[in-house]
Simulated assay, not measured.
Amino acid sequence: MVDPSSGVTKLDLVRYYESVIEWMLPHLKDRPLAMVRAPTGISGQIFFQKHAEKTGMPGLTAHDRSLWVNHPPLLTVDTADALMSAAQMNVVEFHTGNSTILRIDKPDRVIFDLDPGDGVKWKQMQEAALLVRALLNELDLKAWLKTSGGKGLHVVVPLTPRLDYKSVKAFSQAFVGHLAKTIPDRFSATSGPANRIGKVYVDYLRNGKAQTTATAFSARARPGMGVSMPVSWEQLSDLKSGAHWTVQTAREYLSFQTRDPWEAYWSTRQSLASVIKRL
């Protein structure tokens, strides 16, 4: 049993990942991977794995050590076989970095992780996402939305992979700082529970090098087994929580979807150089 609270078994989880292979692989392919494994279920010991081990999973790609100096070989999930191999080896969550293996030092996205503090109602989360989008629009940046599978929402901005991690992280920090300064009763730019009571914490630290975020369609190792689901901005008002879909409900939902709400994301590239000056 992976999750006693919802009754999700390992077979349920494996079948879920099998059903979302075509949707999920574009979000995984060529990206440095971190996996959350739960060999005895999510109520047992859970651990992160970023690198190959002797008990390796067949199908995953281990990249040359020289790709990232002083760093063990990075792993990627590039094929259906690799995804299923990981699922069979008790991987619950798949997290990816903000750059691809081909341009490891140049991120091609910025992620804003919206996390509710104590006392924040879901309606405030929805409004917070819209405010983040509005400020991005002011900067002429297009953004895409997904549920986190947990309590919050992820706002993702595709980039032209030109600037380094230090520059992109500095932009994200300045952006969040501006939000918190402009609307201090709604946003916090400071981590820690005491700093975000009644506020939405926007985590910019996800944009540092070696940092990862739960990828689209990943299940989460939490009671209920929510999944991170890409959605259109028009769907935001209909969402009930960051775990609106779960391992048990996502397959049916996706079976009725004929179009990827992130279709235009894949062909969108945006430069931050002029945006940083404007901000």
Results as ranks from 00 to 15, higher is better:
S241T: 00
S148D: 05
P116A: 01
L25F: 10
Q126P: 05
H63S: 05
G192R: 03
R278M: 10
P193F: 11
K151I: 06
Y165V: 00
G192V: 09
P72I: 00
L74F: 02
I42N: 09
P230F: 04
M125V: 01
A34M: 03
T160L: 11
N90C: 11
L25V: 12
Q235E: 15
D64R: 15
L11C: 06
I104R: 04
P72K: 02
A250S: 04
A80W: 09
G152V: 04
T258C: 09
H178D: 10
H95Y: 01
P72D: 01
L205Y: 06
Q235K: 01
S188E: 01
G152D: 05
E93L: 15
R278C: 10
K169I: 04
L141W: 03
H71A: 08
S66Q: 14
T9V: 05
H71M: 06
T215M: 02
P261C: 00
Q45I: 15
P223F: 14
E263G: 02
A170L: 09
K121C: 08
E93I: 15
W233H: 02
K240E: 15
V156R: 00
R31A: 02
G59K: 15
D238L: 15
R259G: 08
L74Q: 04
D118C: 09
P230Y: 03
T249V: 01
P230K: 11
R103G: 09
K121D: 06
R162T: 10
D164H: 12
L135Q: 11
Q270M: 05
D164V: 07
Y165T: 01
A250K: 04
E22C: 13
K166C: 06
I101L: 14
S271E: 09
T79K: 13
R133D: 00
A38H: 13
V132D: 01
E18L: 12
S6N: 08
L139M: 05
L13G: 08
F47E: 15
D108G: 02
T96I: 05
D108P: 01
Y201H: 08
V77F: 12
L102H: 15
K106C: 04
